[in-house]
Nucleic acid binder design. Structure first.
Lengths: 167, 167
DNA sequence: CAAGACCTATCTACCAATTGATAGGTATTT
DNA sequence: AAATACCTATCAATTGGTAGATAGGTCTTG
């Protein structure tokens, strides 16, 4: 993978997490990276292909971070709590899939599919950690909601208070 | 209030709750209502003025619905749970302020202010109902997250399962 | 009461800017 | 020479927003 591809995906992820799918443009990403917008089309044919690739990478990275924390001995709820919490740290940013999923009607099917896969992966991880179906859904909802509120209010500490009685 | 103004706000609310702030255009709203886009500018000078007005109306309506349920004797958590749940019923739609708040970087300050006011109003209502600060934040997060996941997955029953152990 | 003035709500027509996307050229590397 | 990775230039469509006209209602005033 080239440097440029990574930089494009980094910039796209950053912007999606702040402003959503329709909240970024190829030219903004290009300016962030220091290339021209046509160069982004060279690597990603369409906007939805870029967003889907970003979501796919995000899913893998976040699930791996949780898996690592669990493998290191942390209990499954606290593992996921700290994964979500650390997403807030740089710039009070939303969960990528929360940001996309909140406006699911604005997404192409491929992007929506990645978003749903993320939610399913988190639930599966929580269930694998011993939680019931309903409890897993509740924990995912509480984390996704807490990051949404904290991000909208611009105050990461809200996340901590909203999730203090979770784990 | 004229019929047209209501129809414009109804259409805008519907579209924002499905696709977010950047997910609707004046011409789409105009087509929904059966007028021309210039007529919308007559009633709402800018896009953000329309969105802010829609959010303001939504906040008042939703808070009143919860207040009524509480006044009718329902406990505060179940009152808010049923208010959020009923939002899902017509078309698996998001909470308006959740949809807007998830992409807060895409909003003008006036719209962002309405969104924050909604969250604060829900928290205040929960605290007035006897909950601690942290518990109120947790309930709001859980409801907002549950409606997000259920709406993204297109399955309202997910909301029920995610919130079954809340009240 | 009649007439002119004003207000409301809509329209047609347009604008500048931005959008995602394409075509075709140009270095650099393999 | 062929592939890679970028560029310039451009396109058609869409965007939020504006200008100006028009039809109909209401108010004021002689």
């Amino acid at each position: 993978m080239s440097d440029t591809v990574d930089a494009i995906m980094d910039a796209a992820e950053r912007r999606i997490r702040v402003a959503g799918y329709s909240g970024f443009s190829f030219r903004e990403i290009a300016a962030d990276v220091g290339v021209k917008s046509a160069s982004i089309h060279y690597h990603f044919p369409t906007k939805s292909a870029l967003a889907a690739a970003v979501a796919h990478r995000y899913n893998a990275r976040v699930v791996k971070a949780a898996d690592d924390a669990i493998a290191a001995g942390q209990d499954v709820i606290n593992a996921w709590k700290s994964v979500f919490r650390s997403a807030l740290d740089d710039g009070a940013k939303m969960c990528l899939c929360g940001s996309l999923g909140a406006t699911v009607g604005d997404l192409t099917p491929d992007v929506a599919h990645e978003v749903r896969q993320f939610f399913n992966a988190v639930i599966a991880s929580l269930i694998a950690g011993g939680l019931s179906d309903e409890r897993a859904l509740h924990v995912l909802s509480a984390l996704e909601g807490a990051i949404l509120i904290a991000s909208a209010q611009g105050d990461p500490a809200i996340f901590d208070r909203a999730t203090s009685d979770l784990g």
